[in-house]
Design a protein around this nucleic acid. Structure first.
Lengths: 265, 265
DNA sequence: AAGAGTTTGCTCAAGTTTGCGCGACTTGGG
DNA sequence: CCCAAGTCGCGCAAACTTGAGCAAACTCTT
């Protein structure tokens, strides 16, 4: 059994059966607890799971399969530079925090789905704002925060993605308006086009863009350039991009030439 | 059981069932009360709940009594007979179970807000159905049940009532259709009119009635007759009423004369 | 076939969690 | 006002988890 396969199996186990103890993982995979610990340490550094005392669980509050969303390209696995991938998890938090810092009391913000938006929501605590979202991880994060007026868009519960989708969501989006939209992505193409891998989300993202005055794309440098099967929008639809220094300079330039304000967190 | 999982379970329990005592949490989770105390201390420090003498509750400012949430009429609070309220809780579960038993695989049901509907949702586990709701307690109950297609109506999060309200909810309700609606109430008047105490819910309830083929009112006998400032609908809008033997006979008769099928659970 | 580098399992000290007992405190009722 | 019942916080010991160090096994390259 390859270490890499074992780690993927660990992730799959967590996604399927929820939180798991070190002991049970060791038994199940036929390796020592020390090995499992090291695996969990690795996966935690890569932002694939959260380590907790005694075992591990999927990202934060039952976030079953966040990376399908937030980090849609699975390059982390193929990436031979493990330390680069480790930076990515931190990068996500960095851009999320920088984006959250833009938000002032009294604003109304629209939050896209994905892990990056969840991190962003985490940094919104303490502000007196209105948040509109179809992101269930964001909902879980903010549902007990009395300072935040929380509006949930309707839709079908998509458990694997922790989101709400469908025509109800689209309908609701046509009825609301926000000062700012924070948009996530699977990757930005070299010409500045925003991409996504899940087709069903594309019309929703487009509806969100229509519903907001300002569109802020939040994406760590690992997504420049990035992939995705579907084109969500062009650089002309974006107002601001928050990213990290590791973003590909050519893509960044393409964005700036399209009039986008590129902020390096 | 991981400490982390246990703590999340505590939060979930509080959200679903309202305030809880240290003892009952300890029994439920199979750990000592000391551990529960430490967990509560932890969660309180994290701002996830409010510690109170004897137990804990969700940190909603107005959430003094669980019944404020689900049970839309606040009469349980004013009720000087605590044991009556306790009996009522059992009654609520009885009618909820009877109503849930009506549901067949493949159905689409619409669930109103309130504790009774939460209990009903609890008895829906194991069925392969579609559930549409704006009830966040129902959402919490069913969000991890892979057999149930769950549709959440959009709206503003109303924390004290564990519900979603507003024009987004109404809009969504105009777009969906269900075979059956399970309706809650604060009380049924002597003439069979369904009442409610929260004005903002009335248009939603009316929209739900329009969106369903069959309307099933689920209300324990303590609500016959009952009070409420706003009239939701008349007996003619109801198809079935599920209640307990303690329901006022005159009110029951009025319903039957209006062609309603009154079922005693 | 040998060496460099990685992975794995084991051991051990340090740290964490848990359950229990005890004294102090809070609550509700005479 | 005081009392009884229950709850709380604290210290302690036992059980468990963790991270680090180390040697053996393994992989890959030369």
């Amino acid at each position: 059994m390859l270490p890499q396969s074992r780690r993927e199996l660990i992730l799959r186990t967590l996604r399927a059966d929820g939180p798991s103890e070190v002991r049970s993982l060791a038994d199940k995979l036929g390796v020592s607890q020390a090995t499992i610990r090291r695996d969990l340490e690795h996966l935690d550094a890569d932002g694939k799971l959260t380590r907790v005392y005694g075992g591990a669980m999927t990202l934060d509050p039952g976030e079953v399969n966040s990376d399908i969303n937030g980090d849609i390209n699975g390059d982390d696995i193929d990436d031979p530079f493990a330390d680069v991938a480790a930076e990515r998890a931190e990068d996500k938090d960095t851009v999320a925090r920088a984006a959250a810092d833009m938000v002032q009391d009294g604003e109304t913000v629209l939050l896209d789905i994905g892990t990056t938006m969840h991190r962003l929501a985490h940094h919104l605590h303490g502000k007196r704002i209105t948040v509109i979202t179809s992101n269930l991880a964001v909902f879980d994060e903010l549902r007990d925060d009395a300072d935040i007026e929380l509006v949930l868009l309707g839709g079908m519960v998509r458990r694997r993605y922790h989101s709400l989708v469908g025509f109800l969501t689209e309908d609701n989006l046509r009825q609301v308006h926000a000062g700012r939209l924070f948009l996530g992505t699977s990757g930005v193409r070299g010409d500045g086009a925003v991409m996504d891998t899940t087709l069903v989300e594309v019309p929703l993202k487009r509806a969100m863009i229509k519903a907001a005055d300002q569109v802020v794309l939040v994406a760590d440098g690992g997504k420049f350039p990035g992939v995705g099967v579907a084109r969500v929008c062009g650089p002309g639809d974006l107002d601001v991009v928050v990213t990290t220094a590791s973003a590909d300079p050519a893509t960044r330039l393409a964005l700036q030439e399209a009039g986008v304000d590129v902020i390096t967190a």
